[in-house]
Simulated assay, not measured.
Amino acid sequence: MSSRLASFKGPSTPTSSPVQQRQASSTPSSPARVTESTYHRKLRTLLHELQSITEIWDDLVLIDGLKAAKSLVDLRTELDNTLALVPHRLPRTRIIGPKLAAMDQRISELDTVLIKLRKQFRKINNIVENLDVLVIEAHKNKGWPWVEKEPLWTTWSLEKFASSVPEILIPYHRALDEHITLVNILRNHSASFDASRDAISKWAAQPWLEEHGWDARWEDLCFVEIDRWNR
């Protein structure tokens, strides 16, 4: 994993079109004629698990995290508006204390979201490692030509899947780093409204996943390349 993470410091490189045509001399196998092996089934299972992990990721970001972030900013705005109406000679402790406690609770909720996102990222990395194991097993039992050249269902070989799927680690790692940065901006009680609003906007947009996340890069590809993907 450490060798993969070392590549995250540089800019991501756009990949080629996911579904590539094979040479004219080789006709892709029709899914109707494919006799599935254990490697077909294991690959489909691993990619379905990866799909589920990314769905949980989006729920954490767009439901739990976004709700906590918006509530935090709303609480700060309410406190500022309330204090603006309170005469300076009156004690403000009873006003500020409960609001600060509520804000700290929202920050705690955001920290919990980060913990869960880190867990999902570790699961993504585990899927990648399990794909490597699958390739090694197939190599021993089926031979390297089958692993590298034989289309599993449509055009992609097992080796093509195993060498391409790790690309998904880069955008999700960068998205995780950005969410950590945004939470650190939001946890600062002196953050301006504009800075907080901008942080919430970036939180929801997840720009690193816009072109290279699961939905953008892999869902349609799996539908085309994997028989009975949406069964």
Rank of each mutant, 00 (worst) to 15 (best):
L5R: 14
F8T: 11
T13C: 02
T15F: 00
S16E: 09
S16Y: 03
S17M: 08
V19C: 07
Q21H: 09
R22H: 07
T27R: 12
P28I: 06
V34S: 06
V34W: 02
E36Y: 10
L43I: 07
T45H: 08
S52C: 11
E55Q: 14
I56E: 08
W57I: 00
L60N: 10
L60D: 09
L66H: 12
K70P: 04
D74P: 00
D80H: 03
N81P: 01
T82K: 13
V86F: 12
R89H: 15
I95E: 12
P98Y: 04
K99Y: 02
A101M: 07
M103G: 06
R106W: 04
E109L: 14
L114M: 12
I115N: 10
K119S: 12
K123N: 11
N126T: 08
N126D: 12
V128R: 10
E129T: 10
D132C: 04
V135N: 04
I136K: 14
I136R: 14
G143F: 05
W144R: 15
P145G: 11
W146D: 03
W146P: 05
W146S: 03
E150Q: 14
T155M: 13
S157D: 09
K160A: 14
E167D: 11
L169E: 11
I170G: 05
I170Y: 07
R174C: 10
L176M: 02
L176H: 01
D177V: 07
V183S: 10
V183W: 10
S190I: 00
S192W: 06
S192P: 05
F193T: 07
F193P: 01
F193H: 08
S196T: 06
R197F: 04
A199V: 12
I200A: 09
K202S: 04
A204P: 02
W208H: 14
W208S: 10
E211Q: 14
E211M: 13
H212Y: 09
W214A: 03
W214M: 08
A216G: 14
D220S: 11
C222M: 15
V224P: 03
E225D: 10
E225P: 09
I226H: 08
D227Y: 04
R228E: 07
R228L: 05
W229K: 05
R231I: 11
